[in-house]
Design a binder for these strands. Structure first.
Length: 606
RNA sequence: GGUCCGGUAGCUCAGUUGGAUUAGAGCAACAGCCUUCUAAGCUGUGGGUCAAGGGUUCGAAUCCCUUCCGGAUCACCA
């Protein structure tokens, strides 16, 4: 039982004895004491004032006295300021807490059992016509961090990816490749497959736009209104018509089109795999829309039979959501083909057949909030038990200083380029340092990789996911202040101390004796460490990787202040030295666990 | 227009289920600290009407209402 729990129970007992009040654990508000006041933990007494029919000061005094009586080994002193009862905790409980932290391998994590809820997390979900960009990076990092956090909360987790491998956009790339490609392959060009295909997607758009302009001019010359001419040109351009024809052929299983499609997708997947590996992202199960897009239709027709949906005169199928305060939503086109929503229903069906899911989390951008609101209602109506409370983990866009990223305008930040640039920056920034550490080149490269990616990951994850965030590529990401490298660096310094201690033959015992007397700053640090499980649990229920970032930063900052004021190896009292080593070890351990949840690796030296 | 989400320091962002006379970090600016376990660090200074107004109460950046600003969405696109 933690110190907090013991105090909460004691407060409950105290108010019962003193005022006959049955306080539930939520009424006992226990918080960290502000720095200006003496004490570690503070009980807010206002909730008990009414039952006591006394002033807050007196109530605080009475509860405080009772607590020293009930928990003599924990509460050594107390003081009351206004309605706040500040408790001073004695040293021994802190030390045994530290022992416990060091003795627990995955401190703060809950272990899943066969009965734990099965949570499926969908993220990444790329299109196969272009390489991943910064927006995808945010998606992937959030999704994989979330998966680890939810897992640490004691759930079973399945990470899944739905690849959008069909549709008009892929046909555009294919067509451009046929027309302008001269048989170029990743091997012959030396380009990554996804970049190669992306280039042809851009080429298509370039030629298509040229056609549109020329056509529009013709229409205008023949007396058409400028706007109307533009619209008509967009549809009549030969290239787009060809692309549509290709899509039809694809759907008809035309062997040539399918072969080309498979070939190009393979190239793209090889490229994606490389990007995923660099990002440290992986999946347990990948679904392809080409395999799932027909599935939803059946489910929709089933719903139609049950009277959940209705058919219009033209043959299209709709869901009426007006009773839920929403609009009517198209589910099947008049020609019987699926729309996006239908596909998501189909994917849901397949997933449910593959796994007994208890909860589904979709990591998808906030531009699709409405879509998921609708999907949730539809899945619920169709009888999926997790439909109603599916989670759309909705995240904001990444904006650039001059506005949004637009692939057409060439204002995208490419994921591969970005990661490479971060690693390169980290390398140049640390070159001098590595020399003084006598680090071999291979290790320096490895450290630069961890630090560069750590900076990027932390930078993206520390922002509240649902907010839009600004990314300035020119200023790039710095390595000072509230950053990943700051936390990595502190970790590396602690490792260095631990190595030196080992060199000096100092052995840190498994458990320290609880008789050591420790200082205020040290208890603060232990207190911070003890909040890690709560931070993990909170991040799990709030779906908030940024909460972990904040925790890791605060812990690291507090350690740095401690590190500045106290010597560890230089301490002459050997008991105190062991205690501080043990404390540093725990800080390193917890920050590594926390950063691990974010997918950030910790170098042993840097 | 309907719905949803944001608005906190010059900039990027924190701020736990409402809590403490003084709302926090980092960056940028300025001033210090490497003879001391790694200076990617530490200390200090300046910088705020928490968009605006009203309400709820012992107590509001936090909850409720109104207004203003920004974004997303409301397709037989995905």
């Amino acid at each position: 039982m933690t110190i907090e729990q013991r105090i909460i129970e004691a407060v409950q007992a105290a108010v019962k004895q003193l005022y006959g009040m049955e306080a539930d654990s939520k009424q006992v508000q226990l918080q960290k004491t502000k720095a200006e006041f003496e004490g570690h933990l503070t009980v807010v007494v206002f909730p008990f004032v009414k039952a006591a029919r006394k002033g807050p000061e007196q109530v605080g005094q009475e509860i405080g006295e009772k607590l020293t009586e009930l928990l003599p080994d924990v509460v050594s002193k107390f003081n009351v300021v206004k309605g706040f009862l500040n408790l001073v905790i004695s040293d021994a409980p802190w030390i045994s807490l530290l022992n416990q932290i060091n003795a627990t391998p995955q401190y703060g994590f809950k272990q899943a059992t066969a009965e734990s809820p099965l949570v499926m997390i969908e993220y990444s979900s790329p299109n196969t016509n272009k390489p991943l960009h910064l927006g995808h990076v945010r998606n992937n990092l959030l999704g994989s961090a979330l998966a680890r956090i939810v897992e640490a909360g004691g759930n079973r987790v399945v990470k899944t990816n739905i690849v959008n491998d069909r549709g008009i956009h892929i046909c555009k790339s294919m067509l451009a490749w046929l027309k302008y490609g001269n048989g170029e392959t990743p091997a012959s060009s030396g380009k990554k497959g996804d970049h190669l295909i992306g280039d042809y997607y851009v080429a298509f758009d370039k030629h298509y736009r040229a056609e549109c302009e020329a056509l529009a001019k013709e229409y205008v010359a023949s007396g058409m209104d400028a706007e109307a001419a533009k619209e008509k040109a967009k549809q009549e351009a030969p290239l787009i018509k060809e692309a549509h024809e290709m899509l039809v052929k694809w759907e008809q299983n035309d062997p040539e089109v399918r072969a080309l499609w498979r070939q190009m997708n393979e190239w793209v997947y090889a490229g994606f795999d490389e990007t995923y590996r660099m990002m440290g992202v992986s999946f347990d199960k990948i679904y392809y829309e080409s395999e799932t897009y027909l599935e939803g239709k059946q489910k929709v027709l089933e719903g139609l039979e049950k009277g959940l949906f209705y058919r219009r005169e033209d043959g299209s199928v709709w869901a009426d959501l007006t009773s839920d305060g929403l609009d009517e939503k198209l589910l099947l086109r008049s020609d019987g083909t699926s729309v996006y929503m239908t596909q998501d229903i189909g994917t849901a069906k397949l997933r449910y057949e593959d796994y007994p899911i208890d909860k589904m989390i979709y990591v998808v951008g906030n531009e699709q909030n409405y879509h998921f609101q609708v999907l949730s209602i539809l899945l619920d109506r169709l009888g999926f038990k997790w439909g109603k409370d599916l989670v759309h983990f909705s995240y904001g866009m990444v904006e650039l200083p001059n506005g949004k990223m637009k692939s057409r305008e060439g204002t995208v930040v490419d994921a591969d380029d970005l990661m490479a640039a971060m690693i390169e920056d980290a390398y140049t920034a640390s070159a001098d340092k590595m020399k003084t550490l006598d680090m071999p080149e291979a290790e320096a490269r490895e450290v630069a990789r961890m630090v560069g990616l750590g900076a990027l990951k932390y930078f993206i994850l520390k922002v509240d996911a649902r907010k839009n965030m600004l990314f300035n590529p020119e200023e790039s990401i710095d390595f000072n202040g509230n950053t990943g490298p700051f936390i990595q660096y502190t970790y590396a310094r602690i490792q260095s101390i631990l190595r030196k201690a080992a060199d000096q033959g100092i052995e840190i015992p498994e458990a320290l004796p609880t008789s050591i007397s420790i200082s205020e700053k040290e208890t603060t640090l232990i207190q911070k460490l003890s909040q890690f499980p709560a931070a993990v649990a909170q991040a799990g229920t709030d779906y908030s990787p940024s909460g972990i970032c904040n925790y890791c930063y605060e812990l690291t900052k507090e350690f740095n202040q401690f590190y500045h004021d106290f010597t560890i190896l230089g301490e002459t009292n050997s008991d105190v030295r062991l205690f501080r080593l043990s404390l540093a070890k725990a800080v390193a351990k917890v920050s590594k666990l926390g950063m691990g949840l974010l997918g950030i690796e910790m170098p042993e030296r840097m």
